[in-house]
Design a protein around this nucleic acid. Sequence first.
DNA 1: TTTTGTTTTCAAAAGTATTTGAAAATTCAA
DNA 2: TTGAATTTTCAAATACTTTTGAAAACAAAA
Lengths: 166, 166
Amino acid sequence: MDIKEGKQKFIESWGKMASDWGINRTMAQVHALLLIAAEPMTADQVMSELNISRGNSNMNIRALMDWGLVHKQLRNGERKEYFYAEKDMWVVVRQIIMNRKKRELEPMLKVLDEIAGVENNCPESESFCAVVRDIRKFSGKANQTLDALVKADSTWFGSPLFSLLR
Amino acid sequence: MDIKEGKQKFIESWGKMASDWGINRTMAQVHALLLIAAEPMTADQVMSELNISRGNSNMNIRALMDWGLVHKQLRNGERKEYFYAEKDMWVVVRQIIMNRKKRELEPMLKVLDEIAGVENNCPESESFCAVVRDIRKFSGKANQTLDALVKADSTWFGSPLFSLLR
DNA sequence: TTTTGTTTTCAAAAGTATTTGAAAATTCAA
DNA sequence: TTGAATTTTCAAATACTTTTGAAAACAAAA
């Protein structure tokens, strides 16, 4: 496999994995392309590298900026906008966790709290209440853990403390 | 909110969250329904509770059994099959992690390893190689961590050691 | 101001995923 | 066996998501 093939394969796989995770495949491919690009790229370059339409290129770059994974670079005397990806994996993962946590886990927690309200007058027979109580406890913990993860710095992940868990 | 509303809301939210995570919404709703059911249910009961077709009910129950989240119960002298969900949240989460890890993370790791082959003759200029090296390191760690998580028992999650990470 | 290069929008088209439901297969009891 | 109850399958229909591309908006230069 040469470098060109390797890049192709990487972009393809990154897109594939993303779509398993409920993320638009093209958005992930744009992300992969920018991740491995030596230099910032224009929306036009992304469009022709990936053989996608202008609109698609523009929309997905924009979405990646919303996620905080891609940034804009302006150059003196040039009209075009250049884009580059955040390459520090720790920052990338943190950004993704924060985004998904906020958009997905938190609304679920909110619903669980609302439902918890009915627990007061919950008859013994209701396994419902027990399950909700369990899930709340669990997702609460998960939420705290993610918060900790996000606050922690990159060295934490490889720290001896963390290794103890193995 | 009464219990009936609560159940409805729970099923709805569980389905919503699942579809954000690339899991079939109906499958998650069937899971939610069985999670909060006091007794095992038949495919027919699931079908009418959720207002879905017979085929849909059957297929999703089957998928949940493949994931190891739902089990079959046979009753003496009855033709019908009853189904119930695993209710221990720790087991549920472990099961989900194992499944997704195997289906999604591992293939990605395999691709990264293949790509790593090109690193040997990787020119200095290629930021590609650096990014791939980083991602490999990171996902390798993530993979190990998930393995540890899966092997660990449920007490681990709430253990004092774990709390230190906060 | 007008022209020109560039980005953005969005309705329609194409592509995917899910659901339905009727028919086929299976299973068990009579 | 046969027949009734039950489960499974899968092609077609429906619903949902993504992509396209041309037109509109915008912004700098002439």
